[in-house]
Every structure is written in C-alpha cells, then in structure tokens.
Design a protein around this nucleic acid. Structure first.
Length: 601
DNA sequence: AGCACGCCGACT
DNA sequence: GTCGGCGTGCTC
C-alpha cells in the first residue's frame, strides 16, 4: 500500500531533509510550512518534496502552518541556489526568508504564490542618477505590475512603504501586517510591497519588478543565513522568475558597476544632478592639535548663515598607522591594504594575509619619525566645535533606532558617523564635514576607497546645492576625493577597477573566509590549518596563511583563512568543505564559512 | 560503584 | 540548534 510522504527542511545546520508520512486528508504542496516532530518536539519546517512511498515508516506531519505554500517553484529554486552558494542549509535559508508565524486563528486570508515559469531571465538595470528614487516611485505608482522594494534597514523600509502606500514585509511592522502583505501580494493586493532581507522571496504575480534600494549598502548582507548579499539573491530570483531587477545607487558596488561595463547590466546614462561645492581640505602637517580646518570653519559659518543644519562625520579611530610628515600609510606589500595596529602586541598586522611585523621606528617612504594612528574622538571634536562656535547647538547623533529624524528640530550641528547621512533628506543640510576622511580611506579593507567615495557622494546629495562638503584629508589627490569634487563617478570607478584587477579583488576574483572558533587558541588554529591544508593544491584557488582574529585570550579564540578564487568558487569549495563539516563541532571548535565577505574589521 | 562533564553523532 | 549516549576520570 502506497501513501504520501513529505520531505521537510528545518531551520537546522543540517543539510538534509526529513521524511514524514502525510496524514490522510491533509493536502500538502512543496513550499508549504508544516509542523512535525523532531527530537521529541514539534518544529516548523518547509515541505520541499511530496512523493509516494511504498513502505513509509516513522512519524507523521502534525499539521500545516498555513493552508497554502509560502514559496512557488521559482522561489524554492532561488533558495536552493542561495543556500548552496553560501554553505547554509536550505531549511535555515528558507526560515530566514519567511513571513512570521501566525499568532491569530483562522479567518486569515492566505493565498498561494503565483506559479511562474520564466521564459528568460529578466533584465537587470542599475540606476545611478540623482532622480532615481523619485523615478522609481513614479514608475511603480503609475505602472500596473506588481513590485517588491527591498531596503537596507527598517527605517528605510518604513519611508518607502509610506511613499508608495505599499504593504510592509519588514520586521518594523506588526506580524499581522507582514503576513497580510505577504499573502496579499500573492494575489496582487497589495500590488506593491516593501521589505528588508526577509522579504526577498515574497510572492509577486507577473509582470513583476524587484528593486534593491542603496545597492552598495553593506546592510544588505546582514549576519545569519544565507550569507549572501541581497543583490545576489535577487539576481537569482529575477533569473528564475523572469522579473525585472532594478538596482538603485548613486555609488554602486564596484561589482555591479563592472557588470554594467561588461554589458550584463543596463546602466542608463545619468545626467548630473545638483551638486554642492565639494572641497578637499589638505591637512598634511597642520591638523595635529585642532580638528577644524579653515575651509571647514568657513563652511560651518556659511551653513549657519543659511539657517541650515550641518553634520560633522567621524569614524572610530582607525587601526592604521600613518606618517605625520608625508601622509604615507603603512600597507601590506602583498595585499595593498593598510596594516592594522595592535597596541597590546606591539605589532602591525595585515588582516587579510596575516603578515605581522614589529612596530617600525620610521616611515618607509620619507624616513619621518612621527607615525601615529589617524582620527579624532567625538569628545575632542565636540569641544572644539563648542569653543569655536559658542552659539551653535551641538548634539551627537544617537545610535539610529530607525525612529524619527536624526536631525531634530532646533539642532544645528550633529556629530556622527557616515551612517548618519543615510537618514537625512536630500539637500537638507547646509554643510557636511569629514573631520578625518583618512580614517575611512585607511580602513584595513580593500573596499576602504569605495566606502570613502560612497560617503562623500552621500554627503553631497544630503547637502543643499548652495552648501559645502569639506573633506579634511592628507590625500586631497586621492581619486575617491577628486571624483567627488568633480562629480565624476567614472573617475572613481576607472581607478578602483584598476586597483581591484591588479591585486585580485572582487569583481575580478571572488573571496571566501573560513573561520574557526574553539575553546583554546591552539585548537582554533589547528582547525583552520586543517582546512587550509585541504584547500591548498586545488587549481584556481589562492589560500592565504591563517591569521588570528582578535585577541588570543578571548573567550572564544578565532582564527580565519582567506581564499581567493574564480566566479565558481562556491562549487570548488563545496566538496572539500563538506568533508570538513562546517557548522558542526569538531574537537571543541567550529568552522564558519563566509562567501563574498563585505568587511573584516 | 556512582556520578559529572564533555565530546560527538543523530535528529524522520 | 539541541539532545542524549557514552567514555573518561574524579569522588564517595
């Protein structure tokens, strides 16, 4: 006697499905959420297959969470690819890309996702012009198709939902609201939905547009499965269901820019928008005792006269060491990124390849004796500002909770990090000052130049065309600074692409980090060394020597390993890593794999 | 002998 | 992730 069996994927670091009998009378489909017993308790999982079996044994499905599936075939295929590429389990991936569980009883309207069969991958567009957001709003409001807008954080999702009158899928909305938006979207009501990462697989009837706001924002790759950038998940989605993908950013990731150069992504010509005066204030030799240069002081006066608020941008003090005389930064000769200072160990170490050397006595370029970390603390900047402008109301940006405007009424000057510019209305500031741009430029991360450029461009967009952006820097000729001064994206990307090509960084090579934590430093090291040994010798891979991350005396000592490889890096690593069992404990330690890491500080 | 702890495999 | 089995080793 044959009966039905369902294969269920759970939110576990286990890359296999579990099979259950389907009780008579329960209609189940792929993509549906169910409750089933596992290890003595009832858990929620997703049905990934329903099949006939001659001799079904074991446990039965308890019930369905919803009467209809969450995901259609195209979304399941997208999740499978995302899981495989990021070395996460399918169950963990689906659990991260799902609406909240129901808390209310029956009566809820639940619609199945549309069945989509894509004839061809949809187009990918990269919009970089100043009017990109207004144009997307107008297009979506006046269009007839369905659309999903993915924002980097809850605050942005809220703003987009308000502008579009869209349903909200992000966790800033109530569970009921999110479920209504998810299941309503399947029927095209609401026609427009907005969300963050958890919304990537929300159902959309064709023809559909999927938009990613602030494509370059690292918040699009949050912690947790699947450890892939939302841009990459959406690209797979658009290919699987044939929807149109629109990426929005004035300063796209170099990866997306290069795809446009290669003709894989459409990048319409962007007419220059309004632009304030952007000034590079050279601080070589003059900024050791005061954080405000003359150009910045003038810009503050200018903003005050115009009656507009201003922002001063700081960053945490950099771990990099620079020469006070010639402005050279001490860099790793192999990786090209700034070496990171460890005061405790009295060493300079490369966070990419692990090279470590004792603190040098003098600058390798000019022989200067004054080597110091760059940057200004908030307290010092605030004190200087109050002293120089006693009448100015000064506040520190509170950590953004996403609620309310960052620049409150009455506040004339705000001190914060670059993140502060995200929540500022276009053209609303009188001035933005980067007190120490070099802290951004010298981050020990190959994306430091990109981040600095993006920060400057965001500042120019946040400042009124009659206002000013001041970049205090010892590198006024750096191409990221010059590109912002001249409002010339091409200048930045052409230099940056060259740098990435020369040193083998994305988009020319793909990166992966494998890190190990264990109870002891030695065990973590042994684990990651074992991993490195297994990967060395695979053609096409560069496996760098393992490096310690953080202090050897940390509660959970951590070592990590950088791997560079071609586009098919996930496929090359799949076999060897499966044998090592990432996510599972071994000898008291654990391996974690991160594809396409966005930062490593 | 009896129990505490930690490692490791298994989870339908 | 979480549970339990079982081996090691300490204690009564």
């Amino acid at each position: 006697m044959t009966s039905l069996v369902a294969d269920v994927a759970f939110d576990l670091p286990v890359d296999r499905a579990f099979s259950y009998r389907v009780p008579p009378g329960l209609a189940l489909s792929r993509g549906q959420r169910v409750r089933a017993p596992l290890q003595g308790r009832v858990r929620v999982g997703v049905v990934i297959a329903v099949r006939r079996d001659d001799a079904p044994g074991g446990e039965a499905i308890r019930d369905a969470v919803e009467p209809a599936p969450l995901y259609g075939a195209a979304m399941l295929a997208t999740a499978e690819r995302a899981a495989a590429e990021s070395f996460a389990s399918l169950g963990a991936t689906l659990a991260a890309l799902a609406p909240p569980l129901p808390r209310r009883g029956p009566g809820e309207a639940v619609a199945a996702p549309p069945e989509v069969t894509a004839a061809a991958p949809g187009p990918i567009e990269l919009w970089t012009d100043a009017g990109r957001e207004d144009r997307l709003v107008a297009e979506l409001l006046h269009g007839a198709g369905s659309a999903l807008v993915v924002a980097p954080d809850i605050a942005a999702a809220r703003r987009w939902a308000e502008r579009l009158g869209a349903g909200r899928l992000d966790s800033g909305a109530s569970d009921d609201e999110r479920r209504d938006a998810w299941f309503g979207a399947a029927r095209g009501r609401p026609r427009l939905v907005v969300g963050t990462r958890s919304a990537l697989l929300a159902p959309l009837p064709p023809p559909a547009t999927v938009a990613l706001v602030d494509e370059h924002d690292p918040a699009h790759k949050p912690p947790g499965a699947p450890r892939l950038h939302s841009r990459d998940v959406l690209a797979r989605r658009a290919a699987a269901e044939g929807s149109r993908l629109v990426l929005l950013s004035a300063t796209p990731s170099v990866e997306s820019w290069a795809r446009a150069d290669a003709g894989e992504v459409e990048r319409p010509e962007a007419a220059p928008g309004p632009w304030p005066e952007v000034i590079a204030a050279d601080t070589r030799g003059i900024l050791r005792n005061h954080p405000l240069t003359l150009p910045l002081t003038r810009a503050i006066e200018h903003a005050s006269r115009a009656g507009r608020p201003l922002a001063l941008i700081l960053a945490r003090e950099s771990a990099a060491l620079g020469c006070d005389e010639c402005a050279e930064v001490l860099r790793c000769p192999d990786c090209g990124i700034a070496l990171a200072l460890s005061r405790a160990a009295r060493t300079l170490a490369c966070r990419l390849c692990g090279r470590a050397e004792p603190l040098p006595e003098r600058c390798g370029a000019c022989g200067g004796h004054r080597l110091s970390p760059v940057g200004w603390g908030v307290e010092r900047v605030e004190a200087s500002l109050r002293k120089r402008f006693p009448g100015l109301a000064v506040t520190r940006a509170r950590p953004t909770s996403g609620a309310g405007p960052v620049i409150a009424p009455g506040v004339r000057a705000v001190i914060g990090t670059v993140g502060l510019l995200r929540d500022v209305p276009r053209g609303s500031l009188g001035a933005v000052g980067f007190v120490a741009l070099d802290v951004l430029l010298r981050q020990p991360d190959f994306r430091a130049g990109e981040r600095a450029f993006q920060g400057l461009w965001a500042a120019a967009e946040a400042v009124h065309p009659s206002g000013r952006v001041i970049a205090q820097t010892r590198h006024p000729e750096h191409y990221a600074v010059r590109a912002a001064v001249r409002q010339d994206r091409g200048e930045f990307y052409s230099h940056e692409v060259k740098f990435r090509a020369e040193l083998g960084y994305p988009p020319f090579r793909r990166l992966c980090t494998v890190s190990a934590t264990a109870v002891t430093d030695a065990a973590a090291r042994a684990l990651v060394e074992e991993c490195a040994a297994a990967l060395r010798g695979i053609a096409g891979l560069d496996v760098y020597p393992p490096a310690r991350r953080g202090a050897p005396t940390a509660k959970r000592p951590r070592w990590s390993l950088l791997i560079k490889g071609p586009a098919e890096l996930p496929r090359l690593l799949a076999g060897p890593l499966a044998a090592l069992g990432p996510g599972r404990r071994r000898r008291g330690g654990m391996l974690q794999v991160e594809m396409d890491p966005v930062s490593w500080s």
